[in-house]
Amino acid sequence: MSTLTSSDPARTPAAEEAVTTRRAPAKDKRSFVDGTLNVFSHGFLLVWGLLTVLPLLWAVLSAFKSDNEILTDPWGLPGKLRWDNFTRAWTHGHIGQYFVNTGIVLVGSLTLTMLLGATAAYALARYQFWGNRIVYFAFVGGMMFPVVLAFVPLFFVVRDAGMLDTLPGLMLVYTAYSLPFTVFFLTAFFRTLPTAVSEAALIDGCGPFRLFFRVMLPMAKPGLISVGIFNFLAHWNQYLLPVVLLKDENKYVLAQGLAALAVSEGYRGDYSRLFAGLTLAMLPVLVVYAVFQRQIQAGLTAGQMK
């Protein structure tokens, strides 16, 4: 308790008074105050937890309900588990088709993004040449622009390339729009790798391409995983680009298809199918997230810490 008597110039008299009065009636009062505060803080944590979980849980439960149950008793539990809602969403709601389309696009776009992003970042991080800074800032500057700004010309650029309404077209566009962040992140990462290893490899007669694929790429694995997770989620969840570039309903990706389903439910009133589709769209990522939460949280926040 000696701290009480030590004077602190920064502390205001009022605060001092508050401290003394709070400190004076010995220890049990204080732990009582802390006890209530702990209940409070747990209360707040719990409230926000419920706010986050309840809407998600509600959507999953509603997916098992009948339309009548959904409309008349929003808080009630489903009378029985109606799995056929999911069947209808998967087939008639075309969610199955959208899943396949998203998967196809993702395989191509993620592979391309990682390959092109890593090679560009490596060249920019490890080689001195005229124009290095210009190229770097051309890439990184892309992060500054809102995507909406490119929509109109992008539509015509993709149309002129004959890739409107095609999944390969979408792959290329996803890749191009992911390059700024990927190059930014991986350039920083490649710079941190020790030069001694690559020098040793070069002296041992390792060619520059071999050096990259056999030595540098494995060393950059943690960075590649982080940015890979980031891009995976960005491509899986992408909504605006497909809305502009895909008009053919058979080519829709998941996010876009779900939004379209929601619009059409407004007319048809098939709510259970909509909730089933919603559940199908969100559960896979949430399950993957529950398993890899540490890596995913680190991967997504890493980009912000720069």
């Binding site: 969840n237 909504y239 998941l254 876009q256 779900l258 969100m282 997230y289 995913i296």
Partner: peptide, 14 residues
């Protein structure tokens, strides 16, 4: 952190 996993479409429709 879980809403970060969801696409803007899922969040909007939900």
């Amino acid at each position: 952190f879980s809403p970060q996993m969801l696409s803007v479409a899922v969040i909007g429709v939900l």
